[in-house]
Simulated assay, not measured.
Amino acid sequence: MLKYSKIMCAFEFDGNSTAALLLASALAKESNATLYILHIARVPAQDMIVPLPFDADPRWEKEARAKLALIVQNTIKNDVQYVIDVRTGVPDTDIVRAAHELGVDVIVMVTHGRHGLERFVLGSVTEHVIREAPCPVLVLHHTPSTPAPV
């Protein structure tokens, strides 16, 4: 089995990301690796043409960090060393940027399963990460029936 020292789990607030978190934590436990749980928080007003300056620790990041901490606490056992990392940005670009900055060995994430015109218009975060990441990307397939976490 491959051994990793740094594993990143790209996390969205949906049930599918919980499955990715479980897999990433199992890999981290097996390798005695540090698990970086990354959530990219978008600025609430996505239609802004000119971005407004904001605090060093914006409200939406604090809210996302608190929500993610609760999910992690209810999902991961204490025998895995982890770091919660919440950043404001654009998921496809900032997941890759974080992977470079942290020097991770593998990224674990879920695809959202978009097809056709929706995928063409919105693009594919997973596809971009696979193309641009400095390390292997382990992708779990989207399962539409998975409930969102608390």
Rank of each mutant, 00 (worst) to 15 (best):
V108S: 02
A26R: 14
A56G: 14
H128K: 10
V137S: 01
H39A: 06
H141V: 03
K62H: 13
D79S: 00
A56R: 15
S124G: 03
A99N: 10
I37P: 05
P149H: 11
M109N: 01
A24H: 02
S145N: 11
K3H: 13
A28G: 07
G15C: 04
D92Y: 13
R131L: 07
A133L: 14
V50T: 09
T146L: 10
K77L: 15
A69G: 15
V72P: 00
A69I: 00
R114C: 00
F54K: 07
A64K: 04
E101V: 13
P58A: 05
E101Q: 15
V43R: 12
F13I: 00
R119P: 00
A133H: 11
P136G: 09
F13A: 12
A148H: 14
V72R: 11
L27R: 10
Q46A: 15
T75P: 07
N74D: 07
H115P: 00
T18G: 02
T88S: 15
N78K: 14
E118N: 03
T111R: 03
L117M: 09
Y82Q: 02
V110S: 07
Q81T: 09
T88C: 10
L140D: 06
L138G: 06
R119D: 03
V80E: 01
K6F: 08
A41M: 11
V104K: 04
P134S: 11
A69F: 01
V80W: 02
Q81H: 11
A28P: 00
H112F: 01
T93N: 10
R42T: 11
A64M: 06
V129D: 05
D105G: 08
I37D: 03
G113S: 02
L138R: 11
D85Q: 04
T18F: 00
A19Q: 14
I40S: 03
I40K: 08
L23R: 12
T75C: 07
V121P: 09
L35H: 01
H115K: 09
P51H: 11
N78V: 10
T111Y: 02
V90T: 12
P147T: 03
K62L: 10
P53W: 06
R59G: 08
A148W: 09
V108G: 09
L117H: 01
R114T: 02
R131Q: 14
L27S: 04
L22Q: 05
V125T: 14
D79K: 14
D57Y: 10
M109D: 06
W60C: 03
G123P: 13
G89L: 11
S5C: 13
V83A: 08
L140K: 04
R65S: 13
S5Q: 15
C135D: 08
R119A: 06
A64R: 03
D57M: 14
I95L: 09
L138H: 14
R119H: 05
L70D: 12
T93D: 06
K3S: 13
